[in-house]
Design a protein around this nucleic acid. Structure first.
Lengths: 159, 159
DNA sequence: TCGCGTTATCTCACTACTGAAATAAATAGC
DNA sequence: GCTATTTATTTCAGTAGTGAGATAACGCGA
């Protein structure tokens, strides 16, 4: 059963886009491996850490806003907040203006934990990114911001 | 229980790295949403698709090589190849020079399937990336390749 | 040839999450 | 003010994947 390899698309726009997709995947995976190391060493998952971090830097957030921010499903948000609540790191609070909504708020314990972990996390991200100089990082930010914004705006096309 | 937001790090190298991490995550998520749409419409997972694609363009591959290529755990590779094998899309073949190793090879049916899906997939990636012009995509590729390579080379630091 | 560290794959118990449906409250139009 | 639509969260069954350990084979040096 021979499977002669098939050449990838040669037309420049498609070939370039595919290559960009590959390096995007690999770059994120490589950087994430560093980030994950210090998150998991604290007994947190990525999702849990993302929530603590968001609340730490933004203050109380409605679950829906949290969800958009951390890129997790709605069920996942409930699940993650449940777990953090059971550990006493976060609590839910009622929203005065909308009885359907709930705020997630850091407890004192949660604030202490993320306040302790975050600096080391920031440092390990800085280190993971250090293959690029500051100017290159800024250039990458500009490009990726455009890419992300435009791709989000584009409707997902069914086949 | 007030949680006054804490300012993120202000020193430029750390602040820039963190921002880059955020936009990297968001850009990939946005592009992947497009890619996922056409993969799942064929009843495949991302991992399954990645394997079919790798075999299609590279020919038979040892499981270990596959694993490195698709960024999945060793157990995951076995699991994914099992599933594709059960569906008759892939087979395992013995490696003549190493009795521990196995090749994964596309069957005729697998070749037909990926040959049918891939062009649409390539097109939807091209479309997802179209927020960036060709020159910008090339610039992004260069930056991300460096970033990924350097981050992979850097030892993961335990806290 | 023997032993030993390494490498390739597999097994399997476990888990973090997804996605679809349910509930409930807010809002818009009539 | 009533109905229909939309929005916010929760529930829960299901799943794709992980990761640690097991097994087997390789290959190097003594």
């Amino acid at each position: 059963m021979e499977s002669p390899p098939v050449r990838p698309p040669a037309d420049p726009p498609t070939a370039t886009a595919l290559k960009l997709f590959v390096v995007l995947n690999r770059a994120l995976a490589a950087v994430q491996a560093h980030a994950l190391a210090d998150i998991e060493s604290q007994g947190l998952t990525e999702g849990e850490f993302a929530i603590l971090e968001a609340l730490y830097h933004k203050g109380p957030l409605l679950l829906g806003d949290l969800q958009r921010r951390i890129l997790v499903s709605s069920g996942g948000t409930t699940f993650l907040v449940d777990r953090l609540e059971k550990r006493g790191l976060v609590e839910r609070q009622l929203c005065p203006s909308d009885r359907r909504a709930r705020y997630a708020v850091l407890t004192a314990e949660g604030t202490a934990l993320i306040g302790h972990i975050f600096p080391a996390h920031a440092e390990s991200i800085r280190r993971a990114m250090s293959g690029l100089g500051l100017a290159d990082q800024r250039a990458a930010i500009t490009l990726l911001k455009t890419l992300g914004t435009e791709a989000e705006a584009l409707p997902i096309e069914a086949l």
